[in-house]
Write a protein that binds this DNA or RNA. Structure first.
Lengths: 219, 219
DNA sequence: AAGAAAGCGTAGCATACACTACACCTAGAA
DNA sequence: TTCTAGGTGTAGTGTATGCTACGCTTTCTT
């Protein structure tokens, strides 16, 4: 029942100030990424990571607090890049079908990428234990993608290129259609990834199908 | 460097013969299911499972060989049930739109189900380490669903209800569209599951959209 | 009733692993 | 040059855990 006598000035995840520090920080993140995505969170020990990155265990704990902290930092670090560059400035000047094709192609290429697949697997697996992580991953990745498409559709509705529709729902449906079973097949590593041509062919067909359906049934 | 002197007559996963044996076998499977899906494979110890199921550690190892064996047995056991009852005898007598709606609704209800989500999470997470498991899950579950829809579309093409199309690809696209982002949102537990009405509404819209698109662009 | 096959239960081994302690080294600012 | 915050390296601790050993009990067959 003793009090907590100055709890050691709480040293939480610390961003490094010095040059060498930054270097180690990055090296640790990079090693964590490689190993976590290769073997999975619970199959990698902190010692493995230090062995891979160089540096010392103490530094790892000073920077990231604990193993989960490192994992989270890694996921955030990557999520930022991974789903970026999906927005394009000239997207509004394209015909609708071309715009949809571009969205779909960007998504599908990302979704077939080894690194993105690894993160997806890990986040899905850990999400029940780390809901914060799940939310951040979704918002930075798939959720953002859907939002971008939704807002695109909103503008097309506004300028009468499309009939008034439930853009949020339709954006999700379109992206889901593009992914289809391909995403799961890659997640489970059941087949070799499709070629760029196969991807483009699929996306083109999806865009056509989708727009065809939209014209008929405005809702 | 000694030889292996009769390697103990290899006692691999053993199916129980006696009544009591069967009971324990089932109890172990059920406990494994509950715990694995609740906490994840690596978060559950074999002792936990025995504590939950009753019986003894020895029995578990006699029946399933090791922890992974139990996990695999559990996944197979469940995969069989989970995606069953998707085929219906009268499906060919329905209008195409109604048939698609039924497929979609069945899928979406399953995909929103806690147990199915748990298995999906675990299989995705473990697939890099257990490719056999991944294949079996896919074939028994999502892959079978796609196959059923494909064959349905094949029959509609044959009887000219639909134009000649790439039925395999389209089946995957349709199911993907139905799932859309909803599946991921449930996997990550970001929102409460949708109501039955919401599911039906979404599926109806998907079926309409899909068929509309098909009529326009036969390909 | 007898005997074997299967189940029970505990105790323990071997190991892996997250995390800490601590003493020493280095870089870079004053 | 000196001072110090931050980095290094190693050794260790506590614990969790997969799996085995082994002796006893129950069940089922013949």
């Amino acid at each position: 029942m003793s009090d907590s006598p100055l709890p050691r000035s709480f040293t939480p995840p610390l961003s490094p100030t010095t040059q060498r520090g930054r270097k180690r920080h990055d090296a640790l993140l990079e090693a964590a990424q490689r190993l976590f995505l290769e073997r999975g969170f619970s199959q990698v020990s902190v010692n493995d990571i230090v062995a891979e990155a160089g540096g010392s265990l103490s530094t790892l704990y000073r920077h990231f607090g604990n193993k989960e902290g490192l994992f989270q930092a890694m996921v955030e670090h990557r999520s930022h890049d991974i789903y970026t560059a999906l927005t394009a400035d000239d997207i509004d000047s394209l015909p609708v079908e071309a715009a949809l094709t571009r969205f779909g192609s960007g998504l599908l290429h990302k979704a077939m990428d080894d690194e993105a697949l690894g993160i997806y697997r890990e986040v899905v697996a850990e999400s029940p234990r780390q809901p914060e992580l799940a939310r951040r991953f979704f918002d930075a990745g798939p959720g953002r993608m859907r939002q971008v498409v939704k807002e695109y559709l909103d503008r097309r509705v506004a300028d009468r290129s499309l009939p008034p529709v439930d853009t949020a729902a339709l954006a999700g449906m379109y992206l889901g259609m593009v992914l289809g079973e391909w995403h799961l097949i890659q997640l489970l590593q059941l087949e070799a990834p499709p070629s760029a041509e196969a991807i483009d062919a699929r996306v083109t067909r999806c865009a056509t199908l989708f727009l065809g359906g939209l014209r008929d049934a405005p809702d």
